[in-house]
């Protein structure tokens, strides 16, 4: 009997835990509440199945546990029952998959008007690069990385000269405008992860990966690295600030372009 009781308690307590848990996702700060909704749908469906199965097992143990003289029923299979169970399962799976794929399609389709922002990961810090006045990012190459050009921006590419470089500082983005995060790494895998944005993506040395989002509330958010990148992995933190448009412009004006950075680097080395 203890088994029956424990099984019932597991089903009920798991649901209660879910409902009362203080550990729930962080307040969202991007447009990806679609993802949260898909998770909620999935919770409903899977939660129902879990409770149903565990309670059914509990009932079976309660009702059919061994008593002297009992004999099990003989039934090798029941095609009709199996068919219906499979059908219902398939419907449940489709109910989770369909919205999932729908939202994934949005996730991989970057809006035309998204602003490019580059994030560069290295052991163990974040750097950022924003397009300058010409609105586009210059090309880059890990081979060009040096102490005075930590992001490896190509010096002979005119498009990159006015790029704004934020090294190891904080990134600001304006609220309400879609941003395409271009992700790059110069050493190992990293993963640009801001819990409040929901979206994340690995940064792979040798290639540029991306995701997009639209910030929906202002505030300061912590960037974590979500792909093991060596012993400093937990220390690899950064900051993203979602600003109002005016605050963003103020911040932008204070930043240095690639040309300015190179110049100050030269000054430093000549001194």
């Amino acid at each position: 009997m203890a088994v029956v009781l424990v099984l019932v308690v597991i089903a009920v307590a798991s649901v209660l835990f879910h409902l009362l848990s203080p550990w729930w996702w962080t307040p969202i700060a991007s447009n990806w509440n679609y993802i949260d909704n898909t998770i909620i749908i999935t919770f409903w469906i899977t939660g129902f199945v879990f409770v149903a199965v565990v309670l059914f097992v509990a009932y079976c143990v309660f009702r059919f546990r061994h008593k002297p003289g009992n004999r099990a029923h003989y039934e090798p299979e029941n095609r009709k029952l199996e068919f219906w169970l499979a059908t219902v399962t398939t419907i449940g799976v489709v109910a989770m998959l369909a919205p999932g794929l729908f939202v994934w399609n949005q996730f991989v389709t970057v809006p035309q008007d998204a602003t490019n922002v580059e994030v560069v990961g290295q052991q163990w810090q974040w750097s950022f690069r924003l397009p300058g006045a010409n609105g586009q990012l210059g090309t880059s190459d890990t081979r060009d990385v040096s102490s005075d050009n930590p992001l490896g921006v190509k010096k002979n590419d005119a498009a990159g000269l006015d790029d704004i470089i934020v090294e190891g500082g904080e990134l600001h983005v304006p609220i309400g405008k879609p941003v395409k995060m271009l992700l790059r790494s110069v050493d190992v895998l990293h993963d640009f992860y801001v819990p409040e944005f929901r979206a994340k993506m690995d940064m792979v040395p040798g290639m540029v990966t991306y995701f997009w989002f639209t910030p929906t509330r202002t505030g300061t958010f912590e960037v974590l690295c979500a792909e093991l990148c060596g012993v400093g992995h937990p220390q690899m933190r950064g900051t993203v600030v979602v600003d109002t448009e005016a605050d963003y412009q103020t911040w932008l004006e204070q930043q240095h372009t690639f040309t300015q950075m190179m110049a100050s680097g030269e000054v430093k080395t000549t001194q």
Binding site: T46, F50, M96, G100, D191, K200, A226
Partner: peptide, 21 residues
């Protein structure tokens, strides 16, 4: 059953995005 059902979260590509890692 518990672990299998949470697999449905992680297998469903877009749900995996916030939960992965």
């Amino acid at each position: 059953v518990n672990g299998g059902l949470t697999g449905l979260f992680l297998g469903n590509v877009v749900v995996d995005v916030p939960l992965s890692d």
